[in-house]
Nucleic acid binder design. Structure first.
Lengths: 270, 270
DNA sequence: GACGATCAACTGGTCTGACCAGTCGCCTGG
DNA sequence: CCAGGCGACTGGTCAGACCAGTTGATCGTC
């Protein structure tokens, strides 16, 4: 909300409360602006801290605090001894997934919401991807499902990697980078959050069965994508996630997942 | 992905690459752990920097960099001169909103993607809200639509506020705080991004007509919610956004919006 | 006794200068 | 031509200092 209501002719002058802008904020903002504006593309390098100190005319601690903020936002990465200075990473979904992970771990929102949200995003990715995919996308997805099937029982880590890549390709095929990034962030957050629970299940020997089911789900979804049936792919995606995660959730969250799962029962004809 | 595949019996030992853990990271992690773990509830205070310096046995700059990271994550807030030390804020959705806003503003994704994404999130909010809303929600939504109708031509700012609140109530009624946060962040990003374009249209006198259409759309959506028809509400929501924003977008982005708009034409019966 | 100004003891924000451990690039000796 | 070493950097950290602002008690006044 950048503007107060300028129309209101009240006596209360609509000055915004002036809060002092810290020096490190100004520095961080300037750099961030350049990165977001494309003037500092990913892969390019920032000057060294001592040089920045001269350019901004502030102390090194101020420069360092600004760089810390940018680094914690995932915009840059710095490494000691690097004579080229900090590396510009550009906008990445990592911050998003970290924030999502924190939210999911907090009382504000739980794992159930996270997975429900993933159901929504994945389903919409499928719906769009079914419409917009290329032949190349389908080939790559087929490869990935085959790889999942091959790695299935022995290599859970590789399996998870291929699974993640499958979703990333789908999200990319949806043609919406924002959707893709969010879907990835949520995916990562779910993986990170539920890992501790899943290792127990895996230890109990359910892992192989879960992976087999997952491969089957992915094949069905891939078929739907191939047939350009977005609604079917979306429905299958929701069901797959529900089947996969519902057993590991408390009953309340299961109801939530079911709510996201069910297509509208009383849809009026037409 | 914190774990390498432990099962693979290859010669490659699965050591994780050792990267030095900076002192400020350890400090930030310890504090963050306490905050997320509830040991430092929102509203409580951290010791002063000089005291922290003693407790962690590091220099003040290290403490300050750690606090900067925590502050940029929205976990704490500090104010100069405060004898009580930094205030613990707890997990807040602001980080998420900022991250989303950055993504939306970056060159990675344009306005079209942003609005398409909003179509998806809003539609899913409607779908869930139609199922889960309370009588209170409906009453509040009715109030808001009436207020929009009342403010319609004269007070664009108030209108926009009521409109935003409408969507927030819907998102909250969806029962998924995560979805609500993202929807709000995207909504804000859209408003911020398109404002400069809309003021021109408003100056051209289209504002009143646009607002009248918007009120009608909201009434229809509200009716669908009242009838618990999630699919209809979702479809109406998509259409409303499409009609509202498509005229202001370049043709390429219009096609994108249409892709998100159309229900699947060849849906199999059943 | 209530009240407002004053002041000292803080706070966080910033600067300076220094040291360390690592990294890179050059340069040299084989 | 290459291995090794030697600076000249880098970022990470520390120590100490100063400033402006806040706070709360103290003190003089009414």
């Amino acid at each position: 909300m950048p503007a107060e209501s300028p129309q209101r002719p009240t006596a209360r002058a609509d000055f915004r409360p002036v809060r002092p802008v810290r020096a490190y904020q100004r520095v961080a903002e300037q750099v961030e602006e350049r990165i977001l504006g494309g003037s500092l593309p990913p892969g390019s390098r920032l000057p060294g801290e001592r040089e920045l100190m001269r350019q901004f005319d502030v102390g090194r601690s101020t420069i360092r605090e600004a760089l810390r903020v940018l680094q914690s936002s995932g915009l840059i990465r710095s490494r000691p001894g690097d004579p080229q200075g900090a590396e510009v990473l550009g906008v990445s979904p990592d911050t998003l997934s970290h924030a999502l992970g924190r939210l999911a771990r907090s009382h504000l929102s739980g794992l159930g919401e996270l997975i429900q949200f993933r159901m929504l995003l994945d389903a919409e990715s499928y719906r769009l991807a079914a419409r917009l995919h290329s032949a190349d996308d389908l080939r790559r997805l087929t490869e990935l499902v085959d790889e999942m099937a091959k790695l299935a029982p022995q290599d859970p880590h590789g399996f998870s990697e291929a699974d993640g890549e499958f979703h990333r390709v789908v999200a990319k095929a949806s043609g919406n980078a924002l959707l893709a990034l969010c879907a990835r962030a949520v995916h990562d957050a779910v993986v990170e959050a539920i890992e501790s629970k899943l290792v127990r299940a895996e230890a109990a020997g359910e892992a192989a069965a879960a992976m087999r089911r997952s491969v089957a789900h992915h094949r069905h979804i891939l078929d739907a994508l191939r047939a350009c049936d977005g609604a079917l792919a979306a429905r299958l995606g929701r069901q797959a996630l529900h089947e996969h995660y519902a057993p590991h959730l408390p009953p309340g969250d299961r109801a939530r997942l079911r709510a996201a799962l069910e297509e509208d029962p009383g849809r009026p004809p037409g």
